[in-house]
Amino acid sequence: MALTIKKVEHLAILSRLTLTDEEKESFARQMSDILEYADKLNQLDTENIEPMVYILPALNVFREDEVIPSTPREELLANASVAEDGYFKVPKIL
């Protein structure tokens, strides 16, 4: 299952990554290998098996609707690359 350069470029756009031509080629190769490896699973007969979406035998892991104080804003914004007036500051988005 070979991954095309075009597909890698599409994924790069979705991931907001800029790739060089060499990177595109090497990622295409590497990702194809990964897919091929995972593709082996398709050889298994899963006809009558429910898809597993959660690894623990748990259902309904809930919390009650009770407020816990949020993180102080200075602490929260301390992790931002840039903050201004209590906001996270980001490049303009259209």
Binding site: V61, F62, R63, E64, D65, I68, S70, T71, R73, L76, L77, N79, D85, G86, Y87, F88
Partner: peptide, 22 residues
């Protein structure tokens, strides 16, 4: 006030986990 009702979970910090509100 902006960003006063935010915790590491809803700020998307790595390592946090969601727990569903009943």
């Amino acid at each position: 006030e902006p960003n006063t009702q935010v915790c590491p979970g809803c700020a998307g910090f790595p390592g946090t986990l969601p727990v569903l509100n009943r």
